[in-house]
Write a protein that binds this DNA or RNA. Structure first.
Lengths: 186, 186
DNA sequence: TAAATTGTTTACCGATTGGTACAATCCTGC
DNA sequence: GCAGGATTGTACCAATCGGTAAACAATTTA
């Protein structure tokens, strides 16, 4: 019997792609088994809670990636314009120039929404808070910050859907460029 | 044996809500049976192609609704600013002030995407064309129209995801108001 | 009113679903 | 070199999946 797994982290990364591509309901255990190369035995060894725990692990992993690479930088980088610029570049790269969906969005638009409502809420609320705070440091009026942050974050989500639906990944980059122009007036 | 169905149209409307709430994979036949009150026999009588034909009928229905109530008005109403204004109001109403998801977006972010890629593409491309043309009549530069249309349509999709994820339907209205400000400078 | 047509119920099908049990194997520290 | 935990393959489970068949009832048409 040969060892298959190097790291739990590697499994989570593979799971993420399966959920991203097929949604929560569409990601059957047999599909997961196929794409990860792990049998049910291994899968349930690492995730005793089954499919739900797998998805939770993936969402948690994504949340902490964004926390580290997007939200924190948004809070700490100076000047704020550069921080926002950096965020948009990271987002472009993370979503593979519009060829990759956002798993949070995938879950939010699926029947599994209720199950992961807390995670979704935290992800978007944290993002909005961090971005609005950066806008604040940029001198944008208090009552404008939150609304602009919502416009940007929603714009990113929508652009991903648009890019996929139009089968035109570049649409993502076009929207991103316009959002940038709104945030970081040059 | 009693008649259950008044019109095929009524069935399609009920099917639409099921797919919207549970996604394509999440909408099992037993759930569909429950929500529509129709047994499998009736369902397969109306939609011999099964679940896929049901979804196709729903998507076709939605597409033609948008064609009639959004795209055509966008093309024919004058002045263009009023047409765009009208579109945003219709969208707000159609998506129930942010409490209802867009089924096209739901399908686009699901594993069923490939199956309905053509319908998705047509929907978003038609919308973009009609909106860009209205921008043209508004005097917006040629190279700006398409990009602005993408920003608006993507913005709508993203705002729906945001509203649901934040459990804050009003976020949809806020984004809509900002999009309006961009389209119809007052 | 008889015959088509349309709609509905019920029972059934094989395949797949998520999940469990457990023995077999591998790896590690002692 | 062996004890014991970590990992994995296999077989299995009930439930549900999407779909089919056909008898039957209600309407519509002739």
């Amino acid at each position: 019997m040969s060892r298959v797994v190097a790291e739990r982290q590697d499994v989570i990364a593979m799971l993420a792609e399966v959920f991203r591509e097929h949604g929560y309901d569409g990601a059957s255990l047999s599909l997961i088994t196929e794409k990860t190369g792990l049998g049910k035995g291994s899968l349930y060894h690492f995730f005793p809670g089954g499919k739900e725990e797998m998805a939770e692990a993936v969402l948690g992993d994504i949340a902490s990636w964004f926390q580290t690479n997007i939200f924190n930088r948004l809070r700490n980088s100076e000047p704020p314009a550069a921080a926002i610029d950096d965020m948009l570049a990271s987002v472009d790269s993370y979503f593979r120039q519009g060829r990759r969906l956002c798993l949070m969005g995938v879950i939010a638009t699926s029947g599994a929404h209720d199950r992961f409502a807390a995670e979704l809420n935290r992800y978007f609320a944290d993002w909005r808070t961090a971005l609005a705070e950066a806008f604040g440091r940029q001198g944008i009026a208090e009552d404008e910050r939150k609304a602009l942050a919502e416009e940007v974050i929603g714009g990113i989500q929508g652009a991903l859907i648009l890019a996929r639906s139009l089968d035109d990944p570049q649409a993502f980059g076009r929207v991103l460029a316009r959002l940038k122009a709104r945030c970081v007036p040059s």
